Computed example of a mutant assay.
Amino acid sequence: MKFYLLGERTNIEIDVLHRNFPDSTDYWDVNWVKSKIKIEIPGYLVCFNAELRTDELRDFVNELKLMKRFLQGKASLKNLDSYFQFDCEMDKLGNIMWTGETCYPAGYGAVLTFEFASDQTFLNTLIKELDEILTVFPVVGKP
């Protein structure tokens, strides 16, 4: 199940593959999911596997929904393992400025930092993709 961050000459694809520990009853274990990250920006193509948490996706989509509702604001997809971080901010005209940073291997590998612009037209699709992923991989339990 994939979701996309799209912008001018930028395509970020995050494919959520499966839970790492589907039989666990521990909140901190059961909410890890394996994913594949693919980033295409001018001059670079980056592809690697990463561990995500379903609560990271939930928090991100909730922030995006607020941004869409008020047509301004900020949203961040932060990764506990530091594979990546994507931050966006919408201005009053509906323009969205994104900043991204990846690190692979996580924590000590090569770092790529970049920016790109997009607009609010893709938010509905992004929110729908994330909601569908969270339907299949919901946040389980409480911390």
Rank of each mutant, 00 (worst) to 15 (best):
Glu115Tyr: 04
Ser35Glu: 01
Phe70Trp: 15
Leu93Ser: 13
Glu51Phe: 09
Phe48Gln: 04
Tyr83Leu: 00
Leu123Cys: 10
Thr99Ser: 04
Met90Gln: 07
Thr54Tyr: 08
Lys65Trp: 07
Leu77Gly: 00
Ala75Cys: 06
Ser82Glu: 14
Phe86Leu: 01
Lys65Ile: 10
Thr102Phe: 15
Gly100Cys: 00
Gly43Met: 10
Gln85Arg: 13
Asn95Tyr: 12
Ser76Arg: 03
Phe122Ala: 08
Ala75Asp: 10
Phe60Tyr: 11
Glu56Trp: 08
Asn62Phe: 11
Glu115Ala: 03
Tyr104Gln: 09
Phe116Pro: 04
Val111Trp: 08
Lys36Tyr: 13
Ala110Pro: 05
Leu77Trp: 12
Gln85Ile: 14
Ser35Met: 05
Gln120Tyr: 14
Lys78Phe: 08
Met67Ile: 06
Tyr83Cys: 02
Thr102Glu: 06
Asn95Leu: 11
Ile41His: 12
Thr125Tyr: 13
Lys68Thr: 02
Ile96Thr: 00
Asn79Tyr: 15
Thr113His: 09
Ala50Met: 08
Tyr108Gly: 12
Val61Asp: 07
Ser76Val: 06
Ala75Met: 00
Cys47Arg: 00
Ser76Asp: 06
Ala106Leu: 01
Ser82Arg: 14
Tyr83Val: 02
Leu80Pro: 00
Ser76Phe: 03
Asn95Asp: 09
Thr113Tyr: 06
Arg69Ala: 11
Lys36Met: 14
Trp98Phe: 12
Leu64Ala: 04
Phe60Ala: 02
Gly107Lys: 02
Glu63His: 09
Met67Ala: 03
Tyr44Asp: 07
Gly43Asn: 05
Met97Val: 04
Thr121Met: 05
Leu64Gly: 03
Tyr104His: 15
Phe84Thr: 01
Val111Ser: 00
Thr102Arg: 07
Arg53Lys: 04
Val61Glu: 05
Lys36Asn: 15
Glu115Trp: 06
Lys92Ala: 12
Leu52Glu: 06
Trp98Ser: 02
Gly73Thr: 07
Asp91Ala: 08
Lys78His: 12
Glu56Met: 04
Lys74Ser: 15
Thr125Pro: 11
Tyr44Glu: 12
Ile96His: 00
Thr121Asn: 05
Phe122Asn: 11
Asp119Gln: 02
Phe116Arg: 09
Ile37Arg: 10
Leu71Met: 13
Asp55Ser: 07
Thr121Val: 10
Lys74Gly: 13
Asp55Gln: 13
Pro105Leu: 01
Ile37His: 06
Ala106Thr: 10
Glu40His: 15
Val46Ala: 11
Leu123Gly: 03
Asp59Trp: 08
Ile39Glu: 05
Lys92Asp: 13
